[in-house]
Computed example of a mutant assay.
Amino acid sequence: MRIYVPASLPELATSSGLTARLVHAVTPGLREALPDEDEEGLEYAAQLLAADDSLDLLEDLPPAARRRVVVAADVPESLVEPVEEGEAHTPSVVRLLAGVGWGDVACAHVDEAAAEADVTATLAGDDDAAERLAERDLLWYDVSELATLGRSGR
């Protein structure tokens, strides 16, 4: 099962991978919410929702590390479970029950450095910055690039 893990730049530099948390995936609820989307569109929607959730991880980080990060990983379905009703604010949220090692990661999607100012402004409540951020595409990174990228955000 492909999951989209909201993360932060410093987490990419860890040797152990990513810890268990709420993540996003193409769920029956997401399919129901977006009935006209094909599989690729549903995966993109799950990725965007994970990017929104990554903002919650950035507030206490230094400005140079404030970029949205979404890690795409493939895990057995047994490692995810639905969340309780009312616990999730979007239909793509599932609970990851165990950590994800780097060997299970397919890639990461990360804001470009130029987005840092809009991330900071969005965290401060600037609606215009949030709109600009929503229009930005995340950049694709191969798993082999993630540790170096993570060290740049420290």
Rank of each mutant, 00 (worst) to 15 (best):
Y4G: 04
S8G: 10
L9Q: 00
P10A: 06
P10Q: 06
E11A: 05
L12F: 03
S16E: 11
G17N: 07
G17A: 08
T19K: 11
A20Y: 01
L22W: 07
H24L: 13
A25N: 14
A25F: 07
P28G: 12
P28H: 14
R31S: 14
E32D: 12
P35I: 13
E39H: 10
E40H: 11
L42C: 07
Y44W: 14
A45W: 04
A45V: 10
Q47V: 07
L48Q: 14
L48S: 13
D60P: 00
L61A: 01
L61C: 03
P63C: 09
A65D: 00
V70E: 01
V70R: 01
V71R: 00
A72P: 01
D74I: 03
D74R: 05
D74T: 03
P76A: 00
E77G: 03
E77I: 01
V80M: 02
E81T: 11
E81H: 00
P82E: 02
V83Q: 01
E84D: 09
G86R: 05
G86P: 06
E87H: 09
S92V: 01
S92I: 01
V93F: 07
V94Y: 10
V94T: 02
L97I: 04
G101K: 05
G103V: 09
D104I: 07
V105M: 06
A106L: 11
V110S: 07
E112R: 07
A114C: 11
A115R: 00
T120P: 02
T122Y: 12
A124W: 08
A124K: 12
G125T: 14
E135K: 15
R136E: 15
L139R: 14
W140A: 08
W140G: 03
W140I: 04
V143R: 11
E145P: 04
L149A: 10
G150H: 02
S152W: 06
G153L: 05
